[in-house]
Nucleic acid binder design. Structure first.
Lengths: 109, 109
DNA sequence: TTTCACATATGTGTTTTACCTATACTGCTT
DNA sequence: AAGCAGTATAGGTAAAACACATATGTGAAA
């Protein structure tokens, strides 16, 4: 049994990218730091990154300088930063909702 | 912007039914008490109730005695009660996840 | 030289949610 | 008595979100 926040990967990516630019695979590795239960689907993660870029929330380029396979490094745009702020507010409200639920749950125990 | 917990209607119904038996339309009216943003789709709510009944989590019968249009009154089963307990644990974990996110978000403000 | 970790990406099916429509009973108004 | 709003249950269908599978290539180590 898991209670997942819908589209939680999106704010997670934005938050990680606010700290510093990262490429997709690094994002995948760091997302568990944010307490996500289960593993994030890598295919959907890349799709999401490109969708975010289409909406101007992140910006990317191939990192030729880095060794190893070709990596696309993403960084947050000003719009992305603003969206993250709105996500944080929304998550605060969600926290309140869950708290209300759990309070009522405890009452009846 | 909203941050919804996936399938949040399900634990909401179980919690309300733990307190006392209710019919579908009453459940719809009471769900906002649990802090759900936006309104719950009534069609999906009835479908969910029947799905819960198929799984033995709730039990229902037509309430002939009550006035007004025919009502189907639902009550929680022992299995439903156990599922609610598991939902509560899952929601506690989700709360921790969101807290971790918001803590990290505040650090970088 | 093939195996493994890294890295990006697409295809497709399933689940969950949103939006819309249908049916019927009851009480109130005109 | 006809019409309408509110109560109550239910189905159809489309879109969104997510899961599962596959494909392709690099580079290092065994």
């Amino acid at each position: 049994m898991r209670a997942r926040v819908e589209r939680y990967v999106e704010p997670s990516l934005l938050l990680l990218l606010r700290e510093r630019p990262l490429h997709g695979y690094e994002l995948l590795e760091r997302i568990p730091e944010l307490g996500v239960e289960g593993r994030v689907d890598i295919g959907n993660l890349y799709r999401l990154l490109r969708a975010l870029e289409d909406e101007g929330l992140v910006r990317s380029e191939w990192s030729a300088e880095l060794p190893g396979p070709a990596k696309r490094t993403y960084e947050l745009t000003a719009d992305g930063r603003r969206l993250l702020d709105r996500w944080a507010e929304a998550l605060q409200r969600a926290q309140g909702t869950i708290e209300a639920f759990l309070d009522r749950y405890q009452e009846g125990r």
